[in-house]
């Protein structure tokens, strides 16, 4: 079962790929693969942030609204501040929203899940007021297209960004104090507190990370579509959570799987892409997303159950009876 836990996600990826290759040969064309990876990048980057959050035992449901905030801030400010200035502004706004989430969770002591549910509504209300409910666009500022469309060494920029984000994320997760603290908190928050870990501060940083990664996703999104409005990104948080959980990050916290998240994001994009090529209606695609999420969830439970059974046996040998 250890094998399944470690490599299961890659098996699923290969199987999906094979199925869609048989159904639609176009899937494997080079242009489609590159296209697919670019599509993946938007969910994947935010999912990297979400992987941190879920590892630390937190959920951020407000990222869909933060995505809308990003697109709107960019579209309204690129004409004024230029591309670079607007992106810096968007990142700062994102960081502030993340800090707000973190403060609400830690200081008002509300469960992350519920707190970010509320801020999701608030942020969306805020961005709708900011844009007065209207679309804005960057059709006259095509320079920004370089982010989504430019290529470095033959590969599109978003793929490089994704790769960098995941590499950095993995390094932070595995090899820095912050990463260890996140794992410690997700693993046993009470023990982490007693060990002297600054739990509140770490949780606030986690929310900054989810917000900032979402801003990066949102920037790629804007540069690709060149429009922004306050209604974008509904359900985006669910896609990110689905990728994270499907990738094998434990819902109970403590164990994050960055490469699993990335692979899962690719699988999800692949399925979407394949279904589009097959002409499957949008409704059925949503149904499929929900079903996949459920499948991913129950899979985790099944393997966990088998694991605890194993644990119990070994634990007894060492003479512990505490459940």
């Amino acid at each position: 079962m250890r094998f399944w836990e470690k490599y299961g996600i890659y098996l699923i990826a290969i199987t999906t790929l094979i199925i869609f290759t048989i159904l639609t040969p176009n899937v494997l064309s080079l242009s489609n693969i590159v296209n697919l990876l670019v599509q993946t990048s938007m969910v994947a980057i935010a999912a990297a942030g979400m992987t941190f959050a879920i590892t630390g035992g937190a959920f951020d449901l407000s990222i869909g609204s933060i995505l809308a905030v990003t697109t709107s801030v960019l579209c309204k400010n690129v004409p004024i501040l230029g591309i670079f200035g607007a992106i810096v502004l968007a990142l700062s706004v994102g960081a502030v929203l993340g800090v707000m989430n973190g403060l609400i969770v830690t200081k008002l002591r509300i469960q992350t899940f519920v707190a970010t549910l509320a801020t999701q509504i608030i942020y969306r209300g805020g961005v709708l007021i900011y844009t007065q409910g209207r679309d804005s666009d960057l059709f006259r500022y095509l320079d920004i297209k370089v982010i989504a469309g430019g290529r470095v060494l033959g590969l599109p920029v978003p793929i490089w960004i994704t790769f960098t984000v995941f590499l950095a994320g993995y390094m932070i997760y595995k090899h820095t104090q912050f990463g260890m603290w996140v794992r410690a908190i997700g693993s046993n928050e009470e023990a982490a507190r007693i060990s002297g870990i600054k739990v509140d501060r770490t949780i606030i940083v986690i929310f900054v990370i989810t917000a900032v990664t979402t801003v990066i996703s949102g920037t790629i999104y804007t540069s690709q579509l060149l429009t922004g409005n306050g209604r974008l990104g509904v359900g985006f948080e669910l896609e990110a959570i689905t990728a994270t959980i499907l990738g094998g990050t434990a819902l109970a916290g403590g164990k994050g799987k960055f490469w699993g998240t990335l692979t899962a994001a690719i699988i999800l994009a692949l399925m979407k892409n394949g279904m589009n090529l097959l002409g499957v209606q949008d409704f059925y695609q949503r149904l499929a997303t929900g079903l996949i999420l459920l499948l991913a969830l129950s899979m985790g439970v099944v393997s966990e159950r088998i694991q605890t059974r194993g644990n119990r046996a070994t634990r007894n040998q060492s003479g512990d009876t505490n459940e």
């Binding site: 820095t176 693993s187 060990s195 002297g196």
Partner: peptide
């Protein structure tokens, strides 16, 4: 017991005093 089960022994022992590289913060 107040241990973090998903961390190693050494990580548990020195969780608040991890030796880090100055420049990168890597443990």
């Amino acid at each position: 017991l107040n241990l973090m089960p998903e961390l190693t022994v050494s990580e548990n022992v020195f969780i608040t005093e991890l030796p880090k590289m100055k420049a990168t913060g890597i443990v």
